[in-house]
Design a protein around this nucleic acid. Structure first.
Lengths: 183, 183, 183, 183
DNA sequence: TATGAATGAGGATTCATTCAT
DNA sequence: AATGAATGAATCCTCATTCAT
């Protein structure tokens, strides 16, 4: 693997094992088996590492969502459920890592998360409008933002004693019941 | 006002204007119009200030919830809506401040938030069981946890162009539709 | 007892129970049951307390030595032995306290100790010259200084498993054998 | 010379010119011509510098003692005398530096000094038992401890107007007369 | 006399970043 | 590209001392 990726993965590992506070560039480089100097050949500053870590792992979510084959036979609830399960499956440390990354001040964490949310909203907005012809567009946008923030809250804060499958189910339920109370 | 409270409010203000990383004890003391030393007469370390800020402001939420007169004539949806509106009304910087406080490592932020959530869950658990006799207890607990995390996500991340009243409404909707799909 | 003395004894106690480093004016005042401010009514600064503590306790040594009845029938060795035993008896924490006081920079510790030594040297110089008419004065002064420093070293550093009586005996022996090798 | 040693020597120099209290890490680094940060690449904290200074200079004493050729023709008195003279010769600031180091709280000063004393006691214990077959072992141990503390007192407190050669002589005299009163 | 909250200069320590090799 | 010793600004925190009450 290339140094660039080694550094990103090391940063993620150090972050997961320690505080955000004690995740220093020296410790990252040590874990990566390279020198501190090498980090600065690939990143202009420490926050760029965090941003790269975020990008690297968010791409898993992006892949899960946008590369998913969505057969006509699946309901929206089922689609969401499968999606969330997939994310939990491929990225079990996700919530933990995101919580740690969120602590880093000066990164583009919130921008990046918001951008992803927007992409998802657009994607599902289209998907929904394709399926449920009669939706009021304005409300749908607000509704989808509410859903996204709701999912973020559940995904990042859920107590670990609720199994992922259950969480996926509840997430899909809360969203669909909210958006389509009469279905 | 006493120095203790001045320090807490100053810390909140500095935090709202800057990173938690650039919220230094010196800046807090400067803003409070006292010396750094004075901070350490009331707090053992910087994180205790953050914890106190959290306590101070969370007590507004506690008051709003637990001191509210709940007439029999109100539905659960209305109760939640009023509650959220009240919190937004009395504590407009709430989401922003909470986001900043959440970044501070070494704080008891998560413990404190979790404790509050648990209190609220217990409170509403009783309230709901009083009103809707037929609820399955186990599911209600999971359901309420989902709701709390959902609310946290919405409250902390909602874009500012959705007015508080609307947010309060959507929050009450998403929760009640999720918990009582058939009402 | 007067506040002045209470402060001195408190300082000594705090010093004996903790580091020199953690012996703060606040802790001394707390132990003394007075306010910090009160300390500064009796002492111009912290070091004056230490100096006063030293004076207060050294006076025990002074009393032991200069108020001692010295019968003609006692040998020099016996005199020294009794003296040292007396000091150990009346001031058991002596070595410990002196070691702590010695750590305080900016006090007059060394001047005071040196002054006491000089007084003792003068005293014994006369006493010896009275008894042993034939001593060469110059060498006696050097010899007595050597003895004083030797005693200081033994008194302050002796391991606690040698009992005071034994130490008193060894101190008297090392001094007299050194000064009067032919006796 | 390597940075590590430069720091140690600078610390010793600063300490000799000032209090241990005003011997700050910044002043040490300034004198060493390096940055504060560099100090912390080699030492975990300020006290470790003091410990290293002590080790560095005590090793001179260790070398003097343990690497000395001891011919059969020398008496114990002569051996001690030569030893002390050697130490004074190779380490003229010895007493002063040791006095300063002794003031630093939180150091391993006393442990290190005690350990050295014990090594010396063992060494001389053997040497003496080789030469004077008839010594009572128990008394010799106490006697040697008394001697070591005596030497410490004389070495650290002797007034500077007694020349080293004289001090070496008196030290050897007081020890040997004490240990072997009949020789 | 006594109080004790307030002061603020000063210290140890950290860590992202640099740059000569 | 890689190294890692060196940097130094910036942080938290301490504590002797003051002074209005």
């Amino acid at each position: 693997m290339v140094t660039y990726n080694i550094i990103i993965e090391s940063a993620a590992q150090v972050l997961l094992q320690r505080d955000y506070i004690s995740t220093t560039t020296n410790r990252i480089s040590e874990r990566a088996g390279v020198s501190v100097g090498s980090i600065y050949q690939y990143f202009n500053n420490k926050n760029e590492i965090y941003d790269a870590v975020l990008d690297y792992y968010l791409s898993k979510i992006v892949d899960a969502i946008f590369c998913m084959e969505i057969g006509e036979e699946f309901t929206l609830r089922e689609i969401i459920e499968v999606l969330i399960e997939k994310i939990y499956g491929e990225w079990p440390q996700g919530p933990e890592l995101l919580r740690k990354l969120r602590q880093a001040p000066g990164t583009h964490f919130h921008e990046k998360i918001d951008e992803l949310k927007n992409r998802i909203v657009s994607y599902f907005s289209v998907l929904i409008k394709d399926r449920y012809k009669i939706i009021d567009i304005k409300d749908l946008d607000v509704g989808l933002e509410i859903c996204m923030n709701s999912i973020e809250g559940i995904f990042l804060n859920a107590s670990t004693d609720i199994p992922p499958a259950r969480l996926a189910r509840e997430i899909s339920l809360i969203c669909t019941r909210y958006l389509f109370p009469n279905n």
